[in-house]
Design a protein around this nucleic acid. Sequence first.
DNA 1: ATAATAAAGGATAATTAAGTCCTAATTTGT
DNA 2: ACAAATTAGGACTTAATTATCCTTTATTAT
Lengths: 140, 140
Amino acid sequence: MFSRACEYAIKIMIYIAANESKGKRKGLKEVTEAIGSPEAFTAKILQQLVKGNLLKSFRGPTGGFVINSEKDIRLHDVVKTIDGDHLMEDCVLGLNECSSTNPCPVHDKFLLVKNQLTETLLSTKINDEELLKGKRILRN
Amino acid sequence: MFSRACEYAIKIMIYIAANESKGKRKGLKEVTEAIGSPEAFTAKILQQLVKGNLLKSFRGPTGGFVINSEKDIRLHDVVKTIDGDHLMEDCVLGLNECSSTNPCPVHDKFLLVKNQLTETLLSTKINDEELLKGKRILRN
DNA sequence: ATAATAAAGGATAATTAAGTCCTAATTTGT
DNA sequence: ACAAATTAGGACTTAATTATCCTTTATTAT
């Protein structure tokens, strides 16, 4: 559904959001340990999230990443930043010309699925407390 | 959402199912022309669909492909044959250990989406006449 | 039998995604 | 000023997906 990079990005955002009450910035090492991702690759994704204005970064000792609190970040923002909005916007069969007036055979069948998906991504805040209800795993 | 190969496979199955009333077998050339896919790659996908028992193939002159009419084929079968059932079964965040008793943060949020998707794939027959209502495009 | 036709299948190439490595730039505390 | 820590960024490697090419096998009609 999502690219590997996007899966990591979602975990990153949720981890940082869930732990930012503890004040200090979250470093690359801590994040990769928390979500169980390859370090160098995770660094690239963090960069993308910073460029996309979802995170703010700070260098040097005491440096690290924090959520950009000026924004009210949703899963939709994270997915869009890493994977673009192809999943939400494009034809399921990959047809450029597909639209409600000129539909592919499965266009109507997938309307519900895509709406449900888009709605879920749009409505879920990265710091939604429901995401943390009970014990929640972020890595294997 | 689906791999490119799977997108082609869905188009292949819908095209052959929609045109099989015209009696004769559908050859590789005709199929690639109909769905606008690369010929050699399409041949490989047709092979997979035959191996998965969704199509029957015949060689030689008058040869080609037909739907395996012993089965009542759904989109779910096509997707499973080409992409496997990862999309339907696996954790959205790619976690092996994720389950309803040991969930990832977005597990509940995506239950509806995944159920809707699975239900759509399971309930849509490849020869559903709704897939052909009005003008329906299979290629750009 | 033979020639023509069409799918099967193996090998290889091209492209994209995933992941690594190394150096540069910035910030902090001494 | 300097050393240590930490992110930024470029270049590169590896793996997976997409796509092509060529040969083999089966089938049909002459």
